[in-house]
Design a binder for these strands. Sequence first.
DNA 1: TTCTTCATGTAATTAGTTACATGATTGA
DNA 2: TCAATCATGTAACTAATTACATGAAGAA
Lengths: 211, 211
Amino acid sequence: MSTATAAAKGLTTTSHAILGLLAVRPWSTYELTQQMDRSLGRIWPRAQSKLYEEPKKLVALGLARSRSELVGRRPRTVYSITAKGRRVLAAWLQEPGDGPVLESEQLLKLVFAEHGSKADALATLAGARAWAEERNEGNAAAAREYVAGEGPFQERLAQHMLVGRFLTDFYALVAQWSEWAETQVAAWPDDPREAVPDQAAVEDIALRAHW
Amino acid sequence: MSTATAAAKGLTTTSHAILGLLAVRPWSTYELTQQMDRSLGRIWPRAQSKLYEEPKKLVALGLARSRSELVGRRPRTVYSITAKGRRVLAAWLQEPGDGPVLESEQLLKLVFAEHGSKADALATLAGARAWAEERNEGNAAAAREYVAGEGPFQERLAQHMLVGRFLTDFYALVAQWSEWAETQVAAWPDDPREAVPDQAAVEDIALRAHW
DNA sequence: TTCTTCATGTAATTAGTTACATGATTGA
DNA sequence: TCAATCATGTAACTAATTACATGAAGAA
């Protein structure tokens, strides 16, 4: 979070993410976890248990309300946003957001590839490509649904589309980069410590860095 | 971390990142923080204080050694890797790494853009573009250094290049996506709740999702 | 009826961050 | 000699994860 106003109230970015979901409609906690799995988790991944914890904080601050329902004879909690919650959400949207944060264990392993085998590096790259293809598949399925006029929240499509395009491009980047990197590593000698960089590729990177 | 072997020893991915740096050469803690700022932090961002804490853990486990030096009359700690540390690092490199994790507060704000103003959304996008341009600049400077045959660790360039290309492409993605998204949002009515998606753009996304 | 999956939650632990404190060096 | 920045570290806090526990519903 890059803010001060909201931080004073003890609200994290994750709190606001939940608040945003509640602004769309009321959800039970389980439904919130579904949304995390399906969509929000791609850009703001958090563990299930957070989604049980955060709404309570929102209620304590008067930003959400909870009501108990019965499913059979088992109780569950449904949360909805308050007017104050909507104001806090709107204020948050006015603040500048932090830039994207990228964490990649796979890239980390490649940086230190010289201390392992060439096969290790190739396996890591294969893993990256598989990851990208799997993610893309889920993403593509969602995109097709929307084109067919199906999919939930058609009325929010103008917003979702922006994120959808970002993710599509990102998965394509990872897939294409993996393939390129595999050709680079394939050209390494068996001992990665003796690998020499492809000079043309290095220059190409320097070129790409200007736009 | 996706592993079990190393987890048993209480080693996190961050521990291995430090271990990897120590495998290159010995570093003082401050030098480790420099590396984080300059390069490793782009793919595995961690707070300074972690870099003071983790090496102690490595020493306790026999994976690193520490020696005290004096700078003037002020002491500092320099860490180096042990043979056991190298073995642990090599074992880690054999395990598959987790896929990239992306977190974007900016994308999050766009998902909920309907609850703010059109101007908010445009400001968020401008922020994303500025972020990409700034990151790209640092990255481009490093790339140019390497092309000129300068820059540290020339002997590890074959590895670093793989990561460099990924980051270059990623920053370009963010910049290009921001520009595209700005044209989309610019076409919105003043009340984002009434925004209708650009049908051609939605179909384009669905197309891009197949490769 | 039993097994599996869906659904709902809590407790314990930990990885990581923010804030603080201060000595050394360098340049104005 | 004063201020700024480089360098070195610790302490307090918190956000988040992992592991656990269990009821309800539907399938076999």
